[in-house]
């Protein structure tokens, strides 16, 4: 089984966000990680490989620094990695990513494409579906359980108040959700070893793409930092009195009860 996993390097969830001198989000002094949802996708791919044989290729669009993310995937057990890095991708939106990824994937042979349900930086949940559309493949999003049954895929997709069982022929694009597996831990030794492995790198020109092809659909006009929530009322003391005060306040001041 040939599996391609599309990943993104994102800011660490604890990172504090600030702007750089050009008014964009500052990515210099921030710890970057493999998007946690994409880790589940990589893990699932490796598990499928362990069960059915085949190979796992991890693809990402990012800067030079994204190699670190790919090293982690290699240490976890991915076979090949591929990075698309081009300064013209600075303003990329999910449409851009879908164009680039679909162009890369057109040159490859695959049975299954796995992605995370969303990247924790922009959290738009668009790339998997846009990619599926461009490749004219079926899609299953928010998958929390996956099995291969007689060459088809059978997936559990989380919906409000329950789940759907979705069955599809392969190839298909599947975005995975927390709960699908437990991600293995690549030791520091394995990560060091992975650093010596090859990462194929492409520019837009290498892929035959022009600026027009990857022009984003969205334009960010402004970043707005929300006012931090202020510390409110503190209650302490006798339990029944405190609770009475709380209820009074919720009923008469906040008016939520």
């Amino acid at each position: 089984m040939k599996i391609v996993v599309c990943i993104k390097q994102t800011f660490d969830s604890e990172a504090s966000i600030s702007l750089n001198e050009t008014g964009g989000i500052d990515d210099q002094s921030v710890i970057q990680i493999v998007n946690p949802y994409d880790e589940y996708a990589v893990e699932e791919a490796i598990r499928l490989k362990e069960k059915y044989g085949g190979e796992v290729t991890v693809v990402t669009v990012g800067k030079e620094n994204a190699r670190k993310a790919l090293h982690q995937c290699l240490a976890m057990g991915a076979d090949h990695t591929l990075l698309v890095n081009d300064p013209q991708l600075e303003d990329a939106d999910s449409h851009t990513y879908a164009v680039v990824l679909s162009t890369v994937l057109c040159t490859m042979d695959y049975d299954l494409i796995l992605c995370g349900r969303e990247a924790i930086d922009t959290s738009v949940s668009q790339v998997p579906s846009r990619l599926a559309e461009r490749l004219d493949l079926p899609q299953i999003n928010m998958v929390s359980h996956l099995e291969i049954v007689e060459g088809n895929v059978k997936a559990t997709r989380d919906i409000e108040g329950g789940s759907e069982i979705v069955e599809s022929a392969l190839p298909a694009v599947i975005s995975v959700q927390k709960g699908i597996n437990e991600v293995r831990y690549p030791s520091l030794r394995l990560i060091m070893r992975a650093k010596k492995m090859a990462i194929k790198t492409f520019s837009l020109a290498d892929l035959g793409l022009t600026m027009d092809d990857v022009a984003p659909y969205l334009s960010v006009e402004e970043y707005i930092f929300p006012e931090p929530r202020k510390e409110g009322m503190r209650l302490k003391g006798e339990v029944n009195e405190v609770v009475t005060q709380l209820i009074q306040h919720l009923r008469h001041e906040v008016k939520v009860l």
């Binding site: 710890i31 831990y185 690549p186």
Partner: peptide, 22 residues
Amino acid sequence: LIEKMIGPMSEQRSALESIYKY
């Protein structure tokens, strides 16, 4: 077990990652 990616226990993973990161 870590070399074989059988370990660690899932809750310990974030502790190790955090030592590495922070």
